[in-house]
Amino acid sequence: MRELWRQPGLFTYAIFAVLFLYLPILVLVVYSFNENASQTQFSAFSLKWYAALLSNERVLTAAGNSLLVAALSALVATVLGTLLAVGMWRYKFRGQQAVRFLFFVPVIIPEVVMGISFLALFNLLGVRLSLLTVIISHITFCLPFAALVVQARLEDYDLSLEDAARDLGASRFTVFTRITLPVLWPGIAGGALLAATISLDDVIISFFVSGPTSTTLPVKIFSMVRAGVKPDINALSTLMLVGTLTLAYMAHRLRNSSRNF
């Protein structure tokens, strides 16, 4: 008798499961190239929905906002997260447990609560919702993820390299720029890409902290979907799909390369 997991049933199930995972995405992409507006009848190949996007100023503004927010928040979150990861790993200090707890708070708090807490803070401080408020909140929820990727890289980092360099007369600064940074680099870049992916993906928090002029692409798509299904959303979604897939794949490659060091 064959083992349960060698039986054709499980294999067939796996095939159907994978099909089920890809089906919605495939349908979305195919109908974004459909000449007519139907989501069922495919008449002819056309790029007209993509062309329509290019003349939709609000969508373009939202896309520009999203890219700017993702780039800036990934940059700041990665710098802060890298310093935090290296510091937590290298030193022992009073209150380290408290910092570790604080670090996990943005990860475990439900997203909707994080969103409203930012809104309440900005409101209390009298800060108007703008791109700045979006960037500040994105930095906050990206920080732990960027730090975690760097932390994973630190696990196989050999401190004796630094000792050797110091013995040979390198200054602390030289050690940092010539040894620490190059060794940690794949982790840092991987963390930054992950942060950018999460930022580009976020709907819930941005929904609360973006003002009328600082709408991000996912928030814009959210309001478009609420209004109804239109083929230009298919085209926009396909473009977002290509963007996030590329970023996520690059992050994945970098994270894996850091294991083989």
Binding site: L83, L84, G87, G95, V105, I139
Partner: peptide
């Protein structure tokens, strides 16, 4: 090791990140 776990009061490296999280999470 010169760079192994060192006892510090509150290392400079963790300060910016902690401050950020206190301000925007706590």
């Amino acid at each position: 090791s010169l760079f192994s776990k060192i006892n510090r009061v509150f290392p400079f490296l963790v300060q910016p990140g902690t401050l950020w999280l206190l301000l925007f999470t706590g």
